[in-house]
Design a protein around this nucleic acid. Structure first.
Lengths: 197, 197
DNA sequence: TTCCATTTTGACCCTCAGTGCCATTATTGT
DNA sequence: ACAATAATGGCACTGAGGGTCAAAATGGAA
């Protein structure tokens, strides 16, 4: 495989990195659009073979997501750290923490999320990426409520978290100066008042 | 184009119908799985050319959705019929009505939705199909609250409706004897209690 | 220094989805 | 019979993705 080297140092060294590929790919995506950019374009711009590119990323759609799965462990830990809070609050806080980024990384995050949430192909694909993220939430809620992750409450919790993230990001992307945690908070309040009608 | 004939009767008549294509396609999907069934398989089984098949459906992923867009007008009307109810209740009732099917059609609907919601490719694609459905809700809520469909409340309403549908269908598919309207009602109650924690 | 085990690379070939183009075909109306 | 019309389907092309495998580049052992 690409990243997780079993025997470090042994064997032919890698010729590139995910970071480098993403740098090149985002440049092309922004320049020519996601759909118009072919895997060949990215591979040759990165100076690697197309086949190698597809070993670093399972599909073209996965490139904009970068190292998303690697953040899920931290998300799990974050959830556990709120064990003393009510379940809904714990999930909400963890989701907000999940969306905290250093100021220096915000501009890049905006570009990435705008690309993902405005490109139909990537919008569709996002369900599959968010499925893992939702599973983390469902498993946490199931554990805390002594139920199955597939049960109604854990599934509801994970779907609510996704819905809040979607509306939150919509607002965030529409306002260049918006603060992500603040926007997610507003989204929750809005959802509460909508359902309490 | 395929279905909407501008000058009825004039020109070469159609050789098939969406209903016929779907009948054949579902048979193959169930027999061999969605991914393993190629467009060529479907086209030849339906006795039409692959090119013709792709005129009836924009993509392979759209085939399982059948005439979904055609139901959106009825959905819009259904929403309007609840103008005397509070917004959230109106949306909820319309969503439940949207998911009412004659008993004879239930078995087919189960097969269709199980295929869509358990096939990763179709799960992903569903976002794009549900986007139109969500837009109907957002526009309705925007109209009733005097806001823009892109504003936070309309978007929240539409995302909540989607989340409820997703959890509802999950429960419904897991229980062969479940009633869709009843399950959607339970999903709403669960979401309310989760958020009121 | 040389060989060897190990690991990544990328070339080649294949399948399948989807699009553009366009001649062919089967209708209705004149 | 002859337009006008509209669906059909064949052909060629692009692009995503997967399988296979020989070549390349390392570290370590002899």
């Amino acid at each position: 495989m690409a990243s997780p080297t079993t025997h470090p140092g042994v064997g032919r060294p890698v010729v590139t990195s995910r970071a480098e590929i993403e740098r090149v790919a985002f440049h092309l995506f922004i320049e020519n659009g996601f759909v118009s950019t072919t895997l060949d374009d990215i591979a040759s711009a990165a100076g690697i073979g197309r086949r190698t590119l597809l070993r670093y990323y399972r599909s073209k759609n996965d490139i904009p997501w970068g190292q998303f799965d690697d953040t899920l462990d931290g998300f799990r830990e974050s959830l556990r750290s709120y064990a003393d809070r009510p379940v809904q609050e714990a999930v909400h806080r963890a989701v907000i923490d999940f969306n905290r980024f250093p100021a220096a990384a915000m501009a890049e995050h905006r570009v990435r999320m705008r690309l993902i949430l405005t490109t139909p192909e990537l919008q569709a694909h996002s369900v599959l990426r968010y499925a893992d993220w939702r599973r983390v939430i469902a498993e946490y809620v199931a554990e805390r409520t002594g139920t199955d992750p597939e049960a109604l409450l854990p599934q509801t919790a994970s779907q609510v978290a996704l819905a809040l993230s979607m509306t939150g990001y919509g607002e965030w992307l529409a306002d260049e100066h918006a603060d992500l945690p603040a926007v997610l908070e507003r989204a929750l309040l809005t959802m509460r008042s909508y359902l309490a009608d």
